[in-house]
Design a protein around this nucleic acid. Sequence first.
DNA 1: ACTCTTTGTGGGAACGTTCCCAATATGAAC
DNA 2: GTTCATATTGGGAACGTTCCCACAAAGAGT
Lengths: 342, 342
Amino acid sequence: MNKQKISIHEVARLAGVSKSTVSRVISDKGGSVSHETLERVHKAIEQLGYRRNIVAAGLRTQKTYMVLVMIPDVANPFWSEIARAVQDTLEPEGYSVVIGSTCWSEERESRYYELAQMARFDGVILNSVTDNIDLIKNLGVPAVLIGERTAAQNIDTVGTDTLQATRIGMEYLYETGHRKIALATSDHGSERYLSLRARAYKDFLHEKGLPLDPALLFSVNLDAEGGQALAKQLLGLQDWTARVDSLLCGNDIVAITAMNELRKYGIIAGIDISIVGMDDVPASSQTYPPLTTVRKPRERIGVAAAQLLLKRICDPLGPVEKHLFPGELAIRDSVIDRRKKR
Amino acid sequence: MNKQKISIHEVARLAGVSKSTVSRVISDKGGSVSHETLERVHKAIEQLGYRRNIVAAGLRTQKTYMVLVMIPDVANPFWSEIARAVQDTLEPEGYSVVIGSTCWSEERESRYYELAQMARFDGVILNSVTDNIDLIKNLGVPAVLIGERTAAQNIDTVGTDTLQATRIGMEYLYETGHRKIALATSDHGSERYLSLRARAYKDFLHEKGLPLDPALLFSVNLDAEGGQALAKQLLGLQDWTARVDSLLCGNDIVAITAMNELRKYGIIAGIDISIVGMDDVPASSQTYPPLTTVRKPRERIGVAAAQLLLKRICDPLGPVEKHLFPGELAIRDSVIDRRKKR
DNA sequence: ACTCTTTGTGGGAACGTTCCCAATATGAAC
DNA sequence: GTTCATATTGGGAACGTTCCCACAAAGAGT
């Protein structure tokens, strides 16, 4: 908190130039300033300890060069790695990236939506739990969605191909001899994971001529508590050992905590039941046993989201784009090879 | 991107009042406006789809009501939980909290320092790797440090009592019969963890009359790679099994990855070697075996940091405060009870 | 010498909001 | 009726920077 006001006026006075010249020296756009004048201004800046007020610049230029990345769960490395990739991509372009943590809360989302609407950010990259897609569309600021939303056909979107990712998890379980596969996904947002993953799951079962047991479709929060709940629900399923030989989870956090919860009851992943995660966060290779999972290419997602946002900032009226990247299997030790038993 | 300019002037015109009256309606400070006028203004706002420009308000009031939390490793739940506590504390006070992820990079820190200096944030809460403490002191914006820095005696600080936290880890190991304790800490920042934890470590050994083997002081990055490096360095230590019976790690991430790395060589935590972590992040109870660790009260840290920042914003010249909270043991299964063998 | 182009500089106004102060009206107390 | 206090409103200026446009000077070409 400087007691002495130091704006470009004071710098201009000391350097013996106009405020326009000072502005030309300090602003990103610049302009022609002679070398001699440049030095005089820089010396005055240093002498006075002047610091540019970018709020003022932002008001004049209508640009803040700040981008908000709204992520629902900071503690999940999946999201933090996406944020990092966004950062790596946007910073060289002159943008500062900050993270808004929404904690899966619609109220917290609203708070950041308000900031975005009120000229605080030049763009927003987000994953959202809101059912009110129009809210995102009407932000009045360039936005890129991470993760498929069937209701968001006219918002730029980047993500993993949920159908394909779920499918390769199912395929791997099938190929390793599993026939009684349970699916654990999320009921956040009515048209989200539930329908896409459930669809892939049902399609696959149908394609292989396997029966669909609706009770094997679990809906839990995609966090640690959800993983614990999943284990409990599974154990509470009547005659579950006869009905379930494997579990495909909506993310690694759920898979890991379910795995550890089941161990408390003597049920060991990779021995008694097979478990497959989704994401391939760093922790999944650190579990015991290491978790087989479907890797989501989060760096690619982050980079693509950032690039799409840059494009949208340059051309607000350009065509909507959607980039879905395939997942890939990361085979570790949590899946039993049941083919030996056939 | 509205094509039609809608500022308070347009609202005022439609509502048949002055811009001052519109400002009184929309601004946080408010002012007296008759009920009838209030409704007219609100109707005009809705009709025009007006959105307040808080960048403009920020320039006038010299306040943005945004607080930056700079954290070095978003993927470490320790930091994300602190950020959440900060958020929970500051949001009801009218501040919006955003996270700047520095990724242990001094260059990235600098970037956010610049934003802070240039009037973008009302306050900053940070952990920092920079050796240039004056940089933080001269931010010109209220700042609260998380984590002890001996060089930062005149910056508000909140953290865990590193000496005490290290001590109770050592005590627990000692009481369970360990006499050859190795310490893994970080060399980030020359006066940081290394000296405080090393000091507590050396003091404790001295107090118990135990010999100090300098080779048992490991310095690694406090991340997953560091944990792997730690395991390798330990195994590369000549005659290590005779020299080390336990390992106190600088954080849980290091402990967990070291534990898993050692397992690859048939060395099992809780059976062949004892391992204690630091932090008690959620993952530490999910390991196999679950990790004994020193819990850092991150919610308390986050709340205290936020409160200290509020105080600093209100009174920039008030006395410097420092709050160090004690760690507490979270005893799980990674420590061998060696007392039976004495 | 004259014309054209480029470089460099300065002043004014814009950006959108808030706050200060003056003016007016109303109500209560004497 | 007079005085005082409060509620309400409006206009101007401030906040700090950028950009537009005008002007002057210098250099190159004819």
